[in-house]
Design a protein around this nucleic acid. Sequence first.
DNA 1: CCGCATACGGAAATCGTTTTCCAAAACCAT
DNA 2: ATGGTTTTGGAAAACGATTTCCGTATGCGG
Lengths: 329, 329
Amino acid sequence: MVSIKDVAKQAGVAISTVSKVLNNYPNVSEETKKKVNQAVAELNFVPNSVAAALSSKQSGRVALLLNLGNVSQAVDEINMQYISGTISRAVELNLDVITIFDSMLKNKNLDEVVRYLRSQSITGLIIFGMSKDDRVLQKLIGAQLFKIVTVDAPIVNASSSSIWIDQAAAQYDVARKTLKENKGRSILYLAGKKNGYVTSERLKGIQRLADEEEIPLLIRNGAFSELQARNLTLRYARKKDIVVCASDLMAIGAMRALMDMDIFRPVCGFDGITLMGYAGKQMNTVRQNFGRIASEAVEELKRLLDGGEGQQMVLDYELVRMEYDDVLV
Amino acid sequence: MVSIKDVAKQAGVAISTVSKVLNNYPNVSEETKKKVNQAVAELNFVPNSVAAALSSKQSGRVALLLNLGNVSQAVDEINMQYISGTISRAVELNLDVITIFDSMLKNKNLDEVVRYLRSQSITGLIIFGMSKDDRVLQKLIGAQLFKIVTVDAPIVNASSSSIWIDQAAAQYDVARKTLKENKGRSILYLAGKKNGYVTSERLKGIQRLADEEEIPLLIRNGAFSELQARNLTLRYARKKDIVVCASDLMAIGAMRALMDMDIFRPVCGFDGITLMGYAGKQMNTVRQNFGRIASEAVEELKRLLDGGEGQQMVLDYELVRMEYDDVLV
DNA sequence: CCGCATACGGAAATCGTTTTCCAAAACCAT
DNA sequence: ATGGTTTTGGAAAACGATTTCCGTATGCGG
């Protein structure tokens, strides 16, 4: 393997000089640079990032933690956007991503998880969709070994940042829009998984709407499950004017149930996934730009790794109405 | 940071001895092992894999190349199964995966791609869904720097293996089943993207069926696109008894078109993705177990990295009939 | 032309392992 | 005891970069 040493010899300069040229250090004359670059080209030299990491003690390695949740269509789409968004931006920023699923962490003891990350020289973590009191997350923060960026799970400390969209506002907005469009006077709300951050935020949003409008609000826990949403809809939808769901998948379940019952109720969802187009009816939903969120998360992590202070960022969302034609490719 | 040196001191042995214990080398007495392990525990020592990689020249780093193709729901689901299948197994085998999307490679010159992989000390590649004469793939093989496992793109050489399912047989089977169940006597076949390996294999399968049954076969190129499948169905479905599609997504497009036309034709797909449940009708399809394929690919790569010879593997598939209840969670 | 400041380039230590090679110790049969 | 194996443990040289520190050119003003 051709090393920096060979380049130095070929260029007739010292090893350290080559390193300086390679890393754009000052105090190297143009002439020397040229010599070095030529030697690099001639020898087709590629720096060994492993050696560089060891030497500089900066691995540039970052782990991406994903919550596979109850595996489903919807989650796949979201996770793929997270993954591709993260990786693309990371490569641009010269970070090196290894992907980890929470399912790989379950039934492992927490120390093992930390050991694994440490052994991999991982210095930064991007964590998607993990509730803020998840024990894994707590352990990772507690270890104080990593810079952490969480998405949709606000944590506050100097070496961590959080990014989220205002779930309460979004839930409020989409429900309100649906309510107004249909002149509804009561709401069936199918909530997400218990104890989740986004679940409780969205609950706040819908609660605020009901309070402001002074209309009845029936809340049932649908746990982000299509089947549960379906069953709850079959059971409760007749009694309320509109069905507001904490996720698109649930909205689809609700819509299907309504079609089976042969009654009409406006339904709205949350997430803006493609599957919405297959629900059979138009629906309002909240589009979160997951790719962009991921990309921002990477940038934020980079900032932390470069010594920046932790901060909180709120990104925007968009209300959309989805139907089949929107997804056809 | 606590290093192997500290462990050696604490245990009262030499560095090399610690290393031997850590890596299960022979010729270390039980007693010494115990001392070392105790020291490791006391100091909470975690080996630095970067240093190990540099020293041993075995990075254990592997890249996973994914074809995002025309980004869609279906592709997301398949890719997620590939990714999670790959990563889970890789961690078990102590390989270290970095994920790359072909979209990150487009409009990069090929040398850059190789340089990137080299600089990352990547020694093995798992490549999903890339046609065998893709220029990137060709370049990677040509570089002779990597052990490669391709999925659904047979290549033959000593440092490469390929895994695939028998696309022709699967296409034949599912189409035949659909034909027989419905006593059809003619076929409209909507094919996949031109020049793809799986496309041409599946074509062979459908062709064989038509030949054997001595029935008319109309082939149109639908490029794995839902919209194209829809349009082609609108145009040609009346003339044939059944519609055989080269992918589930196309099958859904076809089914929707038929519903719009208000005529009935049996449709079958290929892949077995969840989305099929939302098509509105039951359909036959071929279920490929993408997770298992990924897992096998990782094992095969490990074998290659350990010095094994390249080989070809054919995995099995399964005919299924999918409907809404199958996907409800 | 001298002296001083600055730009430039090089020698060498370092990062934390693995691995080779060798010496010492332990064992065994005679 | 002796000599010869076999275990066992240690010293030291890699691996391929980065980075610090220092000495020498170089430039410039006087």
